[in-house]
Amino acid sequence: MLKQIRRALLLSLALVAPVMADTFVFTAIPDNDETRLRERFQSVADYLSEQLDVDVRYVPVKSYAAAVSAFRNNQVQLAWFGGLSGVQARQLVPGSEAIAQGKEDTQFITYFIAHKSTGLEHSDTLPKAIRGMTFTFGSKGSTSGRLMPEYYIRQAFGEAPKDVFSRVGFSGNHSRTIRLVESGTYQVGAVNYAVWNSELDAGKINTDAVKVIWETPPYQDYQWTIRGDVNERFGEGFKDKVKQALLNMDDPELLKKFPRSAFIPASNSDYDSIRETAKQIGIID
């Protein structure tokens, strides 16, 4: 009740000094199945809480940009970012650090997928025949669904996607990209390979209608990024404790949530190439 009164006061006056509860808050980009985000990450929060000896809370967000903003605004102190969102976040929060990445994230790839009616087959280079077709990215802020595919499209054709394709859409997320290409609404799309594989395993993809036509070369993707000021707030050595807790995570159940086989150390410089790519495309100033 007291809390409610406080909130009411806060709302009516909007003049309350920042109330900083000492809860360690983290978030994750909504890369996959947003309806299950909370249950997906609650067990991670429990694990971290146990390892770090502080209250840990997970907050779901609706977009990549919202994850970056929450991190930047110090409303979350730790985040599971994609390659691009991590670069954006670290650029905005001086002192923040990439501390761990999934084992798979050093070798992440994007699948270009196409509807069968295009007649496209799997090939070792991006097929020139996709010129003039309709194409959909995933979310605007995604590394695997936007940044890297756009980079490779520009590399292959020397033009912006809107000039290569007859129509360019942004489906919003990876599973919707799969669905839109599967139905032929868009002829070609770019999708996170991990999402494709997990949907394939779950039997959710009609492989008669849609297939992978090209795989990008590997690039760095997801990573855990932590704010630089956590030690001041949660005690000396806190950042290292978080890093250790992540690296020590070996419960297969927990790792499956990401899904990664293990976490390995990461550093800001691992993502230099992603930043360069984003700059070239104009996503980062």
Partner: peptide
Amino acid sequence: PFFLGDGLPIVWG
């Protein structure tokens, strides 16, 4: 106003 939920605290900076 009592049912708006908690959210996260505002950082005025």
